[in-house]
Amino acid sequence: MVNTTDALSRARLLLQLGRPADAERELRGILAEEPQHSGAHGLMGVALVQQGRTDEALEESREAVRLAPDHWVPHYLSGQVHQRAGLTEEALRATAACLALAPEHVPAWDLLARVHLTRKDWPQVAAAARRGLELEPQDADLAGLLSMALTMLGQDEQARAVAAQAVGNDPESTLAHWARGLAALSGGDPGTAAGAFREVLRLDPGVEGARDYLVHALKQRNPVLRLLSQWRQRFVGGWRLLFLLPVLPPVIAVFAIIALLHWVAWLVESWTTLRLTRNRTTRLLFEGPAARVSLLCCALPVAGAVLLGLGIGLGLDGLGSAGTATMALVTPVQEAAHTGSPIGRRILYGWAVLLAAAALAAAVTGAFLPALLATYAALATVWFAAGVRKIFRPREAV
């Protein structure tokens, strides 16, 4: 004879500990004796969706709601299942049904905020988090969600204050430290952001994206790189400027300045990354491609400068132009490395190899014009890469 209350408690605890298969066994024991137990069906849905068995989880969730449509618990668990399954509209309806029956249930407001977060509906995230905090002012996760929403809404100062409150309420909350890191980055404080993301990884090394944010924060501690990155994001130019070239040829100068600005920014980023790969405390964050790309991009200007110097000294225009093309390769290599889509990354690396081959051919043959065109094409990769990234977007994790 199964003690239903104890078995449900064990199942909830096992789910909290990340052991859904063990929770499933407990719940099947309950359902074997009480097939109409709505709570067991609801928790079974959560256990199954955590194991990736989405169809079974949705069926269990629907059965729980059918058995107890006037009780808030099946709706709340259904919201969790649908959110985990990536069905945000269904999760939104289930959570709203839960709150209509139990408006004082704080975890439901947390779930509602997370559903809106998935939809990137930042005002609604903030509204749901604030409503939950009215009921439970010390809830660190709700404060973290509110801080994230405020950051995305451009309210940096308030976001940082709320994030600090969240960390103070619960120093062991991964979400609170994550929100603090995002708020610090947005507010121009990469040092604090790096500390926050380090704490995220300490608390949960498996948090997706935390390592990338930590690397970004560490790079942004370089004030020159931070300033150049801001300029690079602000001064990208646009394809519509091309239509002005026949009417206003001086617009070419605008393109040239923007391209050179990006080249300098990528070069400084390469140097910053290389320094971090040599630092004992940060080298493990940069194992693999990042270290190799930064080393290559620091070597290209040196090799290019040598070729340029030889070309000038020997009076070989083609060799000198090959040197400038070699230096300009920093832009296509970095644009490729910082492209999220695998297809887009392969296209841009292929483009970089093609330009490198043109520079090499110019150095061997002494052809001036191909090397010059390769230089212009390499610097103009800024716009080519933007188009590639627009067409081939990385898939977002659900």
Rank of each mutant, 00 (worst) to 15 (best):
L241Y: 13
K390V: 01
E172P: 03
D170L: 10
T192S: 15
R130Q: 07
T331D: 08
R221S: 08
I347F: 00
R19E: 10
R198A: 06
F368K: 13
V224S: 12
E24H: 01
F197Y: 12
V398F: 12
L329Y: 05
A367W: 15
T5N: 13
R84E: 05
S229V: 03
V224I: 13
P74D: 00
V264F: 12
E63R: 15
L242Q: 05
H37W: 01
A337R: 07
L27S: 02
V162R: 13
C298R: 13
Q51M: 08
R393P: 15
L329R: 04
L203Q: 09
V398C: 06
P123N: 09
A108Q: 03
K120M: 06
L300I: 04
Y76I: 02
T54S: 13
H71R: 14
L244V: 05
L145E: 10
A357Q: 02
Q51F: 00
V302A: 15
T54F: 06
A386T: 02
A179F: 08
A371N: 02
A166F: 07
L372D: 06
T365W: 06
R119D: 08
E287P: 03
I252Q: 05
V254N: 10
V106A: 04
L296K: 07
N3Q: 13
R202V: 04
L185P: 03
L182H: 15
P205W: 12
L225F: 15
L348H: 06
D70I: 00
P107C: 03
K120N: 06
A385W: 03
G132H: 07
T381S: 14
G237W: 08
R53G: 03
G366F: 09
G209A: 07
A291H: 07
D55R: 14
T5S: 13
R393H: 11
H71G: 09
R234E: 01
A371G: 15
T118M: 07
T326W: 05
L228N: 14
L201H: 15
A164E: 04
G29A: 05
C297F: 12
Q16R: 10
V333Q: 03
A362G: 12
T118V: 09
L295F: 13
G191I: 07
T4Q: 11
R395P: 09
V207W: 08
W231M: 08
I343R: 14
A325D: 01
R292V: 00
C298A: 13
A337C: 05
G181Q: 03
A291Y: 05
R198G: 09
R12G: 11
T324R: 13
A184T: 09
E63G: 11
T365K: 08
R130V: 08
Q138I: 01
A358M: 12
E136W: 01
T365Y: 09
L225P: 02
P103R: 08
T95G: 11
M152C: 01
G350F: 00
P250H: 13
L225Y: 15
V330K: 10
S61T: 08
A94K: 04
E104I: 00
R25Y: 02
